[in-house]
Simulated scan of single mutants.
Amino acid sequence: MRAALLMLLALAACQPDDAAEMRRQHDGDTPTPTDAADARGLAVTTERVRYATVDGQPVTGVLARPDGAEAGLPAVVVVHEWWGLNGNVEAMAQRLADQGYVALAVDLYGGEVATTPDSAMALMRTAMGREAALTDNLRQAHAYLADDLGAPRVGVIGWCFGGMWSLRTALALPDQIDAAVVYYGRPVTDPARLATLTMPVLAFFGGADDSIPRDTVSAFVDALVEADVEHTVETYAGAPHAFANPSGQSYVPQAADDAWARTTAFFAETLRAAQGPTAAD
């Protein structure tokens, strides 16, 4: 019994600290907005909404929708990166609304937003210690969009920490999420877990992102194939972690633009075309 316990402790000690690894990847980085992160001028309406209650505490997020939108539009749950629900993530929700979706940018950090890698690491570690609460948060986000706002189809998208949680949301709601997009989030490589997914998955990784090396991406692809999950996985040669973040120091415009074009085409096919014309058409 003692030997088995020691083995379990040793295995636990060998597990990667995702927050520390993200800290290494973002060394010297700051979430400073650039012109590429500016979503002003879009024909969208943005508001703060309460979409969940977790552990007895209200949770608010940013809801973006096309100007004059009626009920019944497809929707997207937008999961922030390790910095938290900042202006960059709000801008991504606005861009999705400009494409004809109701986009809800959720908050998994309890209203806190990081401005330095150290504070982001601390927030991520705290969040990862509350996985059940985060899953509940995202379940309620889906219910808010599907039940309260009447979205006929709901997708999920996330970056970095949010990319990992985009996939986890799909795994938690395998029969309710209709499309999942993962930007450089740590993937699941167990085919048995992925086999529950019924929605198509689109994922993007950086070829120079050593926090999620090529072998891990290959294992993810192999697991998706074995699990018979419809998927597209794109790796951009030479692109670092967070290559699609226009408010960070690792932004690669060509890769980011290509990934965004693929993302919007994917959602158009899985969320809009799949249900026919919408009120925004």
Rank of each mutant, 00 (worst) to 15 (best):
D107L: 06
T189R: 02
G162D: 12
T216L: 14
L85C: 09
L11W: 10
P66R: 09
A239G: 12
R214F: 00
A180L: 05
D228C: 06
Q176A: 09
V182S: 06
F220M: 15
R153E: 02
A105F: 03
E234V: 14
N137I: 05
G84A: 06
V59D: 07
A256F: 03
D17Q: 03
V229Y: 00
Q57V: 12
A43N: 14
A97G: 10
Y251D: 09
A97K: 04
A36N: 05
T46R: 14
G206E: 03
G185D: 06
R125Q: 12
T34S: 07
Q176P: 07
T32E: 00
L9I: 15
L8S: 08
S247F: 05
E21V: 09
D136V: 01
A93I: 15
L149M: 08
T135D: 04
M121L: 03
F267V: 08
Q15V: 15
R193P: 04
C14Y: 07
W159R: 11
F205T: 11
A3S: 15
R153S: 08
T135F: 04
T116C: 13
P191V: 07
R65M: 13
L138C: 03
T169H: 07
F204E: 00
A274F: 11
A141G: 08
L194S: 05
D67V: 15
D17F: 00
G185M: 07
T216F: 00
D258I: 09
Y144M: 09
A219G: 12
A172T: 03
D148G: 02
E230S: 11
F266C: 10
Y51L: 02
E90H: 10
Q140C: 02
E112G: 00
D27Q: 13
P174M: 14
A223S: 01
A179H: 06
L197C: 07
